[in-house]
Design a protein around this nucleic acid. Sequence first.
DNA 1: CCCGTGTTGGATCGATCGGTACAGTAATCT
DNA 2: AGATTACTGTACCGATCGATCCAACACGGG
Lengths: 193, 193
Amino acid sequence: MAGRKQFDVDTAVEQAMQVFWLRGYADASLDALGSATGLGRGSFYGAFGSKDALFRKCLDRYSTFYGAQYERALSAYPGEPARLVEAFLAVTLRRIADPAVPAGCLIAQSLAQLPMLPPDSRAHVRELLDAQRERVRAAFTGLDAESNVLDDLATYVVAVNQSLAVLSRADVPDVELRSVAALAARTAGRGAG
Amino acid sequence: MAGRKQFDVDTAVEQAMQVFWLRGYADASLDALGSATGLGRGSFYGAFGSKDALFRKCLDRYSTFYGAQYERALSAYPGEPARLVEAFLAVTLRRIADPAVPAGCLIAQSLAQLPMLPPDSRAHVRELLDAQRERVRAAFTGLDAESNVLDDLATYVVAVNQSLAVLSRADVPDVELRSVAALAARTAGRGAG
DNA sequence: CCCGTGTTGGATCGATCGGTACAGTAATCT
DNA sequence: AGATTACTGTACCGATCGATCCAACACGGG
């Protein structure tokens, strides 16, 4: 029952992340988080300190894990915007189709609740979205197009990416979402080619 | 203080709608709704019955008001998919730029919290999104393209539409959002032309 | 072997949640 | 004017929120 730590912190963060992801910050009660992680109140506060501290850890875990996947996609097809965008969106499509993980997107979920988040978490979410836009934008540099066109294109890709997550919450079929991604990839290819 | 009804029901629904819109269902406490509408608990429950009954009224008001705007946009340019989509998305852009109304979109907000909504409201939200997809789809009929292409196109337009709302919550500048809409309109024009 | 370090689960805190009950009051009808 | 009706504000309900506290406990070092 006690003694040395009886749970893996990373595993607990992963499980908590999925609760935040599915339910959002406010609706992720400590009871829900506790039963998802298997932790009692003592272990919980001993390991994480507070609900929003844990939430920030979950945001980091999310952006680290999926950020790496997006990064790989973005660097796989340098100079080929259409393929690049396709690979980028495919990361999201794969996640949506993964039954081991909630529908939607933790960032989109958090954006919806942005005004009600604790200030630290609010800033954190904003930074993650900006960082994603910047990474996409960086993947487009080198293409011969005006700078503001690349900005618009990056925002477009991030926008479509978020939209896939939103629609997946309403059980829009994967086939349709794949078509949306394909259309967006063609658009990006034309816009920057 | 009492006697005959001392408030306008429509006005109260409008104000409550904005609270749900900004904060989502769970975070829209009765106190928040009460102070936004100026209603005490007695009047509140006398007029609406329950929180989720009011929420459904707000969903209806939202979809009626903006649904009419979308409808007008969709029927303004028959046979011209690019203009049609542009007009459709412009409804959302106008709403986003309107300081009298919260950022984002009540439907997107509700989708994020879908699993936690009362069952009746959950079904209602789903229907509204499906209805929108159907209306867009209907606006595309008559174009010479295969049926499933029109389906994909409709989903694409609805997706981009939702993405504008999501990004507006993160204070992405209107200029960028307008570019996203323009790109999407061109895509739709090519895809169905 | 047994003490001390540190984790554990549950009891409990004040605040707030959605919802109810009810006394008080203003407007309408006879 | 008096009775009736209908709406309002507030006090209050049990449940649940995030957070704190603490007694009970298991393990590692002396």
